[in-house]
Design a protein around this nucleic acid. Structure first.
Lengths: 270, 270
DNA sequence: CTTGCGCCTGACGTAACGTGAGGTGGTATG
DNA sequence: CATACCACCTCACGTTACGTCAGGCGCAAG
C-alpha cells in the first residue's frame, strides 16, 4: 500500500489548490480533514481528494461555495441538482449576453477611435450609452414608432451601425467647431448637407415625415401623449445628449434657416 | 431655466443608481458633488449627470472604478484609451470562453441526468472534470499520442461526446453493480461486450494497438518514459477516477479472462 | 544554542456596494 | 407646542473567496 495520507502542503501541491484555500475550506466546513491530535496538523486522505475534486468541479460550473456545501452530503445527485444546473445555465447565458454586448461596443468604439485619433468624451459617452442600451431602446420604441420606421432606425449589421456612428461623430465634432457661425457660412452648409445625407441614407422621406408627425404639437390622445413623454424621458435618462444647450439653440436656428427653402416649396404644393 | 440642481435622492431616481452608490462614489473621489454649506447635503448638478454617465459607461465596458478614476480627468479620450479597451476586450473574450466551456459541460451533464435520473456522484464528477479539462487534456496528449489516434480520442461534436459519456456512465454503473461477480457471469459478459462495442465505435484496431504500445512495459527511451509518467500523473491530478481500487482489481481480472481467447488467437498468428 | 522548516491560528485587505444604526434639521399634524 | 415623520448625514459592519502577512509552536540540523 502506498502512502495514504498527505500533509497540507503535499495535498496542495498534488491537487493544485493553495494551502490558504484548504484552510479556508476547512474553516467554512466544506472540506474538513482529520487532525493529528498531538500537533493539530491537518491530515488529508484519499477521500478528501475526491471531495476536493467535487468542490472544484462545482466551482467550475460557477456555483458559490455556500451552494456547493448543500450538495456535498448525499452520495448521488438527484433531480434537484438538475434544477441547480439549469439555474446556473441561465445565469451563465445572461452573463455571456452582457459580455457580447460589451464586446461589440468595445470593437465599435475602437474602430471609431482608430479613425479619429482624438474624440470628444461627451460624444463618445453618448454613443457608448446608445450601444449599451440598444436593446432597451429598441423595446421602448416598439410601442411608439411604426415597425417599418423601426427597421430603419435600428440598423442590424455592425457595419451599418459603424457607418452611422462615424457620421454622427463627425457631425457632433463639426457642431462643436462651428457653433455660433451663421447659417450661410459654407462650412456650416457643408456640415448640414452631409448630416442630411447621412439621415437620408438611413430613412426615406416617408419615414422622416412619420417621425416628424410623432413629435408634432397636437397629439390626438392624452394617453398617447403621456406615453410619448415617458418614452422621451426614459431615453433621455439612458442616453445623455452630447450637445450643450448653446449648441442646441444654434442648431435649431441654422436648421430652420437651412430648411426654409424646402418649406416654401412644400407650402407651394399645399 | 429649469431646476438645475438635484438632491441625492432625486439624482438617484433620475439616473437609476442607488443613493448608497452615490455616497460610495463620493467617498472614493469618483464623483464629488457640491455641498450645501449649512446642512452638508450633497447638491448634484447637470455636470454631475454627465460624469455619472461616463462612469456608468466605463463600468458597462467592464472596467474597475479605480481604472475609471484615471480616465475621468481629461476631456478627450486619446490613444491610451484604445489600449485600455483592447485590454478589456481580451479579458472579456477570455471570460466568455470560460463561460462557453462551463455551459457545454452543464448541458451535457443535464442531458446525462435526464436520461439516468440518478447518477453516482463519483462518476459524474469524473465526467465533469474531464469536460473541464478537455482542452488541457488534448494539449497534454499531443506530444504523447499520434495525431491520427488523437482525432479519434477527442470527439469533436457535442453529440459524439454525449454518446461516449452516456456509454461510459452506464459502464461505470454496471461496474459498481456487478463488482465481484465471476467473469463468466452473463451480465458481466454483456457489460464488457457493450463496453468494447463503445470503444470499437470510437477507435479502430490499429489505434487500440497504438495505445497499447504506448503503455507497454519496456520503453525505448528514458526521456519518453519520464514524459509518459508525467503525462499520466497530470491527467490523474486533473481527472479523478470514479473507480475504487477494489473495482479496478476486479476489472483487471475479468478483462484478462474476457480477452484471453483473443490473445490465444493472436499468439497463433504470431 | 540558534536557525530554519513546516505547520498552526488570527486578522486584515480586496471590489463595489447593501444594509442597518444612530444623529440632525426641517416640516406637517395633533 | 410637542411630536411624528421625512430626507439627509456619517459610521461601520457584512458580503465572496481567498491572498498576504504576523506571531507562535515543535522538531531537526548545524
Amino acid at each position: 500500500m502506498k502512502k495514504e495520507t498527505f500533509s497540507i502542503s503535499e495535498f496542495a501541491k498534488s491537487t493544485g489548490v493553495s494551502v490558504r484555500t484548504l484552510h479556508y475550506y476547512d474553516e467554512k466546513n466544506i472540506l474538513k480533514p482529520k487532525r493529528d491530535e498531538n500537533t493539530g496538523h491537518r491530515i488529508y486522505e484519499k477521500e478528501d481528494m475526491i471531495q476536493l475534486h467535487k468542490i472544484m468541479t462545482m466551482k467550475f460550473l460557477g456555483m458559490s461555495l455556500d451552494n456547493i456545501k448543500d450538495y456535498m452530503q448525499p452520495d448521488t445527485f438527484d433531480l434537484s441538482f438538475i434544477d441547480t444546473l439549469r439555474l446556473q445555465e441561465s445565469k451563465l447565458i445572461k452573463d455571456r449576453e452582457q459580455i457580447d454586448i460589451a464586446l461589440e461596443a468595445i470593437q465599435r468604439t475602437v474602430h471609431l477611435l482608430e479613425n479619429e485619433k482624438e474624440v470628444d468624451q461627451a460624444v463618445l459617452i453618448s454613443l457608448l450609452a446608445s450601444m449599451q442600451h440598444e436593446k432597451k431602446q429598441e423595446e421602448l420604441s416598439k410601442g411608439i414608432i411604426k415597425d417599418e420606421v423601426m427597421k430603419k432606425m435600428f440598423p442590424q449589421t455592425a457595419k451599418e451601425k459603424m457607418i452611422v456612428e462615424q457620421g454622427l461623430l463627425t457631425f457632433y465634432k463639426q457642431v462643436r467647431e462651428h457653433c455660433g457661425k451663421p447659417a450661410d457660412h459654407p462650412e456650416v452648409k457643408q456640415m448640414l448637407d452631409s448630416f442630411y445625407h447621412l439621415i437620408l441614407g438611413i430613412f426615406d422621406m416617408d419615414s422622416i415625415e412619420e417621425l416628424g408627425e410623432i413629435f408634432s404639437l397636437d397629439l390626438e390622445d392624452k394617453a398617447n401623449e403621456e406615453r410619448l413623454e415617458a418614452y422621451l424621458k426614459e431615453i433621455e435618462r439612458l442616453i445623455p445628449t452630447p450637445i450643450t444647450e448653446e449648441e442646441e439653440a444654434w442648431l435649431e436656428q441654422i436648421t430652420t434657416d437651412y430648411l426654409s427653402p424646402l418649406w416654401d416649396e412644400e407650402e407651394g404644393e399645399d
